[in-house]
């Protein structure tokens, strides 16, 4: 196995690790709700077909996807590709299920798994420079996820802070929101919500352009933004962010190691 193939395989595994961390966090978070859903199923709904109302189907896809961990022990790229196709289908299945359609984690998981399918095919490819596309596509996916968020927030409810005031300041029972409620006036809370909301919109707008940034900067931007988001919304947000972080880390790794792989192959060719 050439050094280049080893580097590409490791990048694939970095992205897979991010994907699985996100899925695992989601499993821990949601399995209780799925099990509760088994006791109180929605048996009639105008949109969802019968299979997509069955909580057992969602639970099955949920558990099945954890089998993607086999990707760490398999060398055959056809198997890796097959595993990644399975991850795409599990994410799509849960995006289409009545018990889980609302969870942004599965949209991030879907796109990240699509990258894994595409990259698995290229691990043993002799094409020089394919790493550049892996980096750009990975950053493009992260940018797409934030583009969806920022465009959906370009409305007065977000820009004036009302949505953040209601969703965080009023509803969140943990620090810093409980402390803010106890110590600040309603007027101050609303003013802060407005500035916070506008800050979020600008930050998400910046992240939406990630495909236009060097991988090193992309890593700095996503790391700082993700840490801030986890600090505010909690560790469960890793279910959305970990698959995206996996893509950015894989890209940065490929950028750092690509020269090594190319030099080794030139040396071997002499």
């Amino acid at each position: 196995m050439t050094l280049r193939v080893q580097i590409r395989r490791k990048a694939w595994r970095i992205a897979l690790a991010g994907w699985l961390i996100g899925w695992f966090v989601n499993t821990v978070e949601n399995t209780r709700l799925f099990l509760a859903g088994l006791e109180t199923p929605i048996t009639e709904h105008w949109l969802f077909p019968e299979a997509m109302r069955n909580p057992g189907v969602a639970l099955g896809m949920f558990v099945l996807a954890l089998g993607g961990g086999a990707g760490f022990g398999v060398a055959d790229v056809r198997v890796l590709r097959g595993l990644a196709v399975g991850l795409v289908l599990c994410a799509l299945g849960l995006l289409g299920h009545i018990a889980s359609y609302n969870d942004a984690s599965y949209a991030a998981a879907f796109w990240s798994a699509l990258w894994l399918v595409w990259w698995a095919r290229r691990i043993e490819d002799g094409n020089v420079g394919v790493e550049r596309h892996a980096i750009a596509l990975g950053q493009g996916i992260v940018g797409l996820c934030f583009l969806g968020g920022v465009i959906g927030k370009l409305t007065p409810d977000y820009w004036n802070g009302e949505a953040f005031y209601q969703l965080y300041v009023v509803q969140k029972p943990y620090f810093p929101f409980d402390w803010m409620r106890a110590n600040w006036s309603d007027e101050t809370l609303r003013a802060c919500s407005g500035w916070f909301a506008r800050g979020v919109i600008v930050s998400e707008g910046l992240l939406a352009t990630l495909i236009l940034w060097p991988p090193r900067w992309a890593l700095v931007m996503t790391t700082s933004a993700f840490l801030g988001m986890i600090g505010l919304a909690g560790v469960q947000l890793l279910s959305v962010l970990a698959p995206l972080a996996g893509l950015v880390l894989a890209g940065r790794y490929l950028e750092g190691k690509s020269a090594d792989g190319e030099n080794a192959e030139r040396g071997a060719g002499k």
């Binding site: 942004a104 949209a107 796109w111 968020g149 409810d157």
Partner: peptide
């Protein structure tokens, strides 16, 4: 599959 985190009021 179109991402839409925290969209609309």
């Amino acid at each position: 599959v179109v991402p839409a985190m925290y969209s609309f009021g």
